[in-house]
């Protein structure tokens, strides 16, 4: 029951060691044990995307992912974006510029989804179409914005890309 397993992974660029129960969900490890509260619990049922984090480049729902499976991986949460000198990354800037944030509860998840997708696209030198961008964000529910501005922000991330 109380068997703790030690896992090692890179969290927001730092080597991290944590002892966790085998059944612990990644979202609970992040929020409750590591106190990284930026990852949001919208449903805990894999339906809303508010809890999205990036693992080895892929956006995943941290409420559907066991913490122990992060062992050996690279985990990025919303707290891992930006830096001390430059607190906002491009995606975050674009979200603000395009008014894509209202209550903001979905925003961490939305930003991580856009980030993972755009990193992949940029690595392969592609600029996605608006339809592809919509598809990439289909798993992120937002009740406030009606998505238009979120899609605008996602699109604007590629503004400086040669198309």
């Amino acid at each position: 029951m109380n068997n703790l397993i030690e896992i090692k992974f890179r969290l927001n660029g730092k080597e991290t060691k944590v002892k966790v129960k085998p059944a612990l969900l990644l979202i609970d490890m992040l929020r409750d044990e590591l106190k990284l509260k930026g990852t949001k619990p919208g449903c805990l049922e894999g339906e809303c995307g508010a809890c999205t984090v990036i693992i080895d480049g892929d956006a995943i729902n941290s409420c559907m992912y066991l913490a122990i499976n992060a062992d050996g991986k690279e985990v990025t949460t919303i707290e891992g974006l930006g830096s001390q000198d430059n607190p906002l990354e491009l995606v975050q800037e674009k979200m603000l510029e395009h008014g894509a944030v209202q209550c903001g509860f979905c925003s961490s998840g939305v930003i991580m989804t856009i980030k993972a997708f755009s990193d992949k696209m940029k690595a392969s030198g592609k600029t996605p179409t608006r339809e592809e961008l919509k598809k990439s964000l289909e798993g992120n529910l937002c009740r406030c914005t009606g998505y238009v501005k979120i899609i605008d922000a996602a699109e604007a991330v590629y503004d400086d890309q040669p198309s």
């Binding site: 930026g38 975050q92 603000l96």
Partner: peptide, 9 residues
């Protein structure tokens, strides 16, 4: 807005 896009809110 900044607090809300950085997870700090």
């Amino acid at each position: 807005g900044k607090e809300r896009v950085t997870g700090q809110a």
